[in-house]
Amino acid sequence: MTENTNTNKINSFQKEQNKVEMRKQIITFALMIFFTMIAFFAVMLGVSSTFVIPLILILAIVQVGFQFYYFMHMKDKGHEIVSGMIFGGILVAFLVIITFVAITWW
């Protein structure tokens, strides 16, 4: 019987933790919406392109970071291999993009 009460305690503790986690995720979501809006408004208002392109790219990268680390829990323990794979993919992706922007001419 003692075991049972133990699990219940862990469960309620776990529930509390899940709640805290959820609150963080809502904040993350709010920030993402906010960033999206900034990006869209910056473009709609016609800010000069030398400024706006880096801005929207940075906002995109930050948003994606939120997705990976908060929504997909990459910040949690047990995600070391996962991070390795994603960053490996990002590295190759980066090379590909650089290639197609810089050394694929028409």
Partner: peptide, 12 residues
């Protein structure tokens, strides 16, 4: 179009 794209992707 751009035929270099094939070469890049193929060798990547």
């Amino acid at each position: 179009g751009n035929s270099i794209i094939w070469q890049h992707l193929f060798w990547i």
